[in-house]
Nucleic acid binder design. Structure first.
Lengths: 352, 352
DNA sequence: CGCTGAATGCTCATTTGGAGCATTAGTGGA
DNA sequence: TCCACTAATGCTCCAAATGAGCATTCAGCG
């Protein structure tokens, strides 16, 4: 997928010969897993629905809702997903879109666990968390719990300078002796671009790239668990974000990435909002997703000017200040512009 | 995937109980197909690599290179794909990215054909066609052959006004008697937005949406073949674009869609260009992909200003006019900007 | 040698995007 | 009751990005 990333696609022991079967053509059939990153905004915090369980060998207890796809029971992939989510969490999904299909690239197989599928399809679902009710098995957790370096709402996260930068740079140094084919892009450059170091801009849409880089460098616990690279040679540092089971953190990274990208050209924020909201609440939700603060007046101009919302006529008091007009999503915008979305761009405060 | 589209996800007879197997967990295993839309630009024409074969029941002879994925032989999905492409066409893929995973939604099963996989994963590959050499089995064909309505290089394609518009509008009318739940977006509005009718702007990035709409309306031959809807009730009109086997035209639509979107924020055009090229050649390639004409001087300013290219120092004569400087892709741009691409937007000539 | 068809260099008018100033209006206390 | 505080809102300014068009330069060709 990405020419900059090559390490992870490299050989890993072939552990996955179970679950194979042959059809009449002699072609192998494989089991398919469906995983859902179900995202909401709860108290101005971007949250994902996680299912908690006994820890795996990396100590991960959290995972995304998932289940196998069986074409016998479900006509479509998405249909299968919705059923599984309903069964596992009692949640009825609204908006859902497919993210990516991952082949088995060395995903760990836990002795006691369910045998993980060889191919897993990730989905992103956006929903309203409401007051957190209605989820029978699972809990809403900030996604920044798993990706603390992605949370720029209170400025640049300290973990980047204190942990990530030095450890990644050590990893880059360790590859310096150039006895072999050089990669297309040097490790140090990838680090710089991914984490906005040395004057490079922080790009909030590189969520997956960053996670993959940390994985490749052996700095996330999943890498250790999967038996990758010389993990932990950098000493006993605090873990970088909480790990998840299987490759679920990678799927969640893909989900965050997609959400951040899509919010800019599709009116998907409104899937996360109640029917009526103030512009400030809307802004807070957008900031929860994207990270950095936005200029309040310009945000208003943007959102109103694009015709994304319309006033309901009601006001909301108890805002802490002057009462605010209530707005609702203006559905007709879909018929007016080809790609309506919250076209914000990061302010310079998020750069360097 | 798309809230506007619902028809195609509706029930179709469940034909796909072969090929199922059970693993130790009791979960069904399915066969996975890998399909590649391999794209190049040949003589200023956007082409895809197609494999030709005996016609299916819809008369389709063309298909994309494809083969089953067997984890026994291939560690990664992409690895499996590359092998298949190499075997079928002799082509060694360079840039490739995953597009989408399609579940079986009523894909036709030809009696004499290979049993099509239940789940198929589409890939997009970009390559240089060179002089058309080196393809042992298959041929480069304009992608506009399958999607004539997408080719706006010589103005609005006549087929839209002469065939598509009247037939789609008839289809929309046929749904008017509102005895049932109304869809979120009316057919007439979808038609208007998709094909830029009645003053709406043409959005070159709606390739998939347009194809899906035509399929839903029963206006492409694959819909008839798949036994969908009341196809052909509109009389005996010429076919809208050449059909392809299985769901390959849908995959190709996805590929075109992705290429058109990605060219704007990633330097993927250069995968299609020779090492050295003039700015006009580059522009012609971009136009081949996107459709409409671009303002020549602004294109130059854009591409040079963004640092996407650098002069080689050589000149090209025989341009038909004044000699042109030769340029090459400036790889370092990847280290400078977060999302480098040919950020063109459609001129008003492409509107209405 | 003058003409033709591109390649190039520049200018100009808008539009869009990023910031900041000023004012208005409930809330909570003093 | 009046004041300080916190937001919500209305506008203005300025700079950068974008869309068009004019003018000039040149190799190839009757």
């Amino acid at each position: 997928m990405n020419m900059e990333l090559s390490g992870r696609a490299k050989p890993t022991p072939e552990k996955a010969h179970r679950a194979l079967a042959k059809d009449s053509m002699g072609h192998a059939a494989v089991e398919i897993g469906l995983n859902a990153a179900i995202v909401a905004v709860l108290d101005n915090e971007p949250v994902a629905l996680v299912v908690r369980d006994a820890p795996d060998s990396s100590g991960a207890t959290d995972g995304l809702p998932f289940g196998p796809f069986s074409p016998r029971d479900h006509r479509t992939l998405e249909g299968g997903l919705r059923t599984w989510v309903r069964n596992q969490t009692g949640l009825e999904l609204g908006y859902a879109e497919q993210l990516y299909t991952f082949g088995d690239r060395g995903r760990h197989i836990e002795p006691g666990d369910l045998a993980p599928p060889i191919v897993s399809i990730g989905y992103l679902a956006l929903t309203q968390a409401g007051d957190g009710r209605g989820v029978s098995n699972g809990a809403w957790r900030t996604w920044y719990h798993y990706f603390p370096w992605e949370d720029w709402r209170r400025g640049r996260p300290e973990i980047i300078a204190s942990e990530i930068e030095p450890r990644l740079k050590a990893w880059a140094e360790s590859a310096k002796p150039s006895n072999g084919p050089q990669p297309l892009i040097a490790r140090s450059d990838r680090i710089r671009m991914c984490f906005g170091l040395d004057g490079a801009a922080w790009d909030e849409e590189k969520v997956l790239e960053r996670y993959e880089l940390l994985y490749e460098a052996g700095l996330v616990d999943e890498a250790l668990r999967d038996g990758r690279s010389s993990a932990r040679v950098w000493g006993d540092h605090p873990r970088l974000g909480q790990p998840m089971k299987f490759d679920h953190r990678r799927i969640l990274a893909t989900a965050i990435n997609r959400t951040r990208a899509k919010i800019k050209y599709r009116p998907v924020v409104f899937e996360l909002m109640p029917d009526e909201f103030t512009l400030y609440e809307l802004q807070k939700s957008v900031e929860a997703i994207l990270g950095p603060h936005l200029h309040k007046q310009n945000f208003r101009r943007l959102v109103e000017g694009a015709g994304l919302v319309e006033p309901t006529g009601e006001m909301k008091t108890r805002t802490g200040g002057r009462p605010a007009k209530l707005f609702r999503f203006r559905r007709e915008v879909l018929l007016e512009r080809p790609a309506p979305g919250v076209r914000v761009s990061a302010p310079p405060s998020s750069r360097t």
